[in-house]
């Protein structure tokens, strides 16, 4: 009995120990970036206002130099792998927009020095929609889209 209690006690201390370490290492995260998250852009209900508040413009130029990789049919809308790459020069950010999601803007990646314009992630899609890759390069917005069919929605609908 006593050994059981001791075991539980040890488990408890180990857990708090790990949490403490995680919390303190989290403090090392740069503070300045906190202000960058745009509530207006991510809560916008349409693409134009999302892009305007995030990138200052919603004027898109179609470009064949952006490649978007996503499945033609996504069986599970909760997990749709998307990759965006481009050979455009002076890329500042890569943005992923899902046209028919409640809040179209899914992700914005700001590239730092040396970063290659090629990112992959996984997104949720409520229903069949066009997925837009919007690239900001040299102050202008370029985009390419791809239609993804969703058989089961991923936004809790």
């Amino acid at each position: 009995m006593t050994s059981m209690k001791r075991r539980i006690f040890l488990k408890g201390t180990l857990a708090t120990g790990a949490l403490g370490v995680a919390a303190s290492s989290g403090l090392l995260a740069p503070r300045s970036v906190l202000a960058a998250w745009s509530k207006d852009a991510f809560e916008a209900k349409d693409i134009n206002s999302a892009l305007s508040s995030l990138l200052g413009s919603s004027n898109l130029t179609a470009s064949t130099r952006i490649k978007i990789k996503a499945p033609d049919i996504a069986e599970n809308g909760a997990v749709v792998p998307v990759s965006v790459s481009t050979d455009l020069e002076g890329v500042e950010s890569i943005n992923i927009v899902v046209e028919k999601n409640q809040n179209p803007l899914a992700a914005n990646f700001v590239l730092g020095a040396g970063a290659i314009a090629d990112v992959s992630t996984r997104i949720k899609m409520g229903k069949t929609s066009s997925v837009l890759a919007v690239v900001k390069a040299g102050g202008k917005l370029y985009s390419t889209g791809k239609e993804v069919k969703v058989t089961i929605g991923g936004c809790g609908g």
Binding site: A36, V79, N101, N103, N108, V110, D118, I123
Partner: peptide
């Protein structure tokens, strides 16, 4: 800083991210 990602709730559960520099 190499890359900063700003995400909405439309990123999948247990997010995956891959990129290069």
């Amino acid at each position: 800083t190499v890359i900063t990602g700003n995400w909405g709730a439309a990123i999948s559960k247990n997010p995956y991210l891959s990129f290069s520099f």
